[in-house]
Design a protein around this nucleic acid. Structure first.
Lengths: 144, 144
DNA sequence: TTCACTGCAAATGATTTGCAAAGCA
DNA sequence: TGCTTTGCAAATCATTTGCAGTGAA
């Protein structure tokens, strides 16, 4: 079995046919460690890699991958959406100067943040609601 | 001195001339307790109140007020921006079903969250960066 | 063959901008 | 008067959608 078998399997598990463009995009996304992409950046990288795919399909694919649990959507700043290949529980740094984001390493205060989050009890929530998720964004600027 | 004197003062302090539309919008924003508005909702309320103002001016005014420290911009979900009349340190509930936001009351786990945030030391931040702010969004969905 | 999928271009929604006219100091 | 502000319409940006053509099972 080729190197794509895992990817094909994941796509199938997400109920998606392993089409040429989905395979190619999946290779870009999942073949090089954790990444944060926007539709635009992924589209550009696809172009550079000589992949023939339209921007609309990149958007569709990102959403399908997200729905299938292969990606996590990160919304910070009301401009573009980022898609994170790290789907485990974690939080983000946001670099205000560049608009980039990065995962907060698990060895930092990520632990502290999660302690707090885990301490939140349903009784503290508005009536009729349930906790969906807690997003923490540590916004950074250039040091003096 | 009329009821607008405080508002006029605040506008002046923010370096803004107290024009007719800025005064009118400020009255809508700061005269009725804490609020979360979008450009569109504020524009609608202005219309209903018979205030003659353009949407572009509402946008400009919201940004000017934000720059002047009279409002705080809250970005959650990459659609529209909310502007919060509560400029003190606090965090938000986000209702996924309606797209609305609300302040987390200070008597809830807001305290816990702030404990964690205050515990974050600069040494945990990426080199060359300084902490700007930490945004915590507690995302809620309808209870089962 | 039959739907799922793709590409393109047009539509959308939020927001910004250019610029002439109107308003405040 | 002189510099701000405003309004309107056009421009942008990110994203979505309609629909005819293409491809996978």
């Amino acid at each position: 079995m080729g190197p794509d078998s895992k990817i094909v399997e994941d796509l199938r598990a997400a109920g998606l046919r392993p089409t040429r463009q989905r395979l190619a995009l999946a290779r870009l996304l999942f073949g090089h460690g954790n990444q944060h992409v926007t539709a635009e950046t992924l589209f550009e990288r696809a172009q550079l890699a000589g992949i023939k795919v339209s921007l609309a399909t990149v958007y569709n694919t990102l959403h399908q991958f997200t729905d299938g649990g292969l990606l996590r959507r990160v919304m910070v700043g009301s401009l573009r959406s980022y898609f994170d290949t790290n789907v485990t529980d974690h939080h983000h740094f946001f670099f205000e100067d560049t608009g980039e984001i990065a995962d907060i390493p698990p060895d930092k205060f990520n632990w502290q943040i999660n302690q707090t989050i885990n301490g939140i009890s349903p009784s503290g929530l508005p009536v009729g609601t349930a906790l969906s998720r807690i997003d923490v964004v540590v916004r950074l600027r250039a040091a003096d």
